[in-house]
């Protein structure tokens, strides 16, 4: 099932970037979260993409994106 809730930061509004087809039928969809940039395929195992079961160690805090450092500063 395709959901537009991000498995990583739980924001809504994911956009569809691509659909894979096999014999004319859509077999999976690649989505991207505009908040945290997580990209995923809706056919992936739940532990990688389902916010209900995905490891919290790899969550991104959508409310505090400032905490992530910027590389190559002058």
């Amino acid at each position: 099932m395709t959901t537009t809730i991000c498995g990583r930061c739980k924001s809504s509004g994911a956009v569809t970037d691509h659909q894979g087809r096999q014999d004319g039928a859509v077999v999976w969809t690649i989505l991207r979260c505009p908040t945290c940039n997580f990209s995923w395929r809706d056919s992936e195992p739940a532990r990688a993409i389902d916010p209900a079961v995905r490891s919290a160690d790899f969550a991104v805090d959508a409310g505090d994106l400032q905490r992530y450092p910027k590389i190559l500063q002058q």
Binding site: R32, S39, W40, R41, E44, P45, A48, S55
Partner: peptide
């Protein structure tokens, strides 16, 4: 494809 399962993307 996702190389390791918690990579941030492709």
């Amino acid at each position: 494809y996702r190389i390791n399962e918690y990579d941030g993307g492709f």
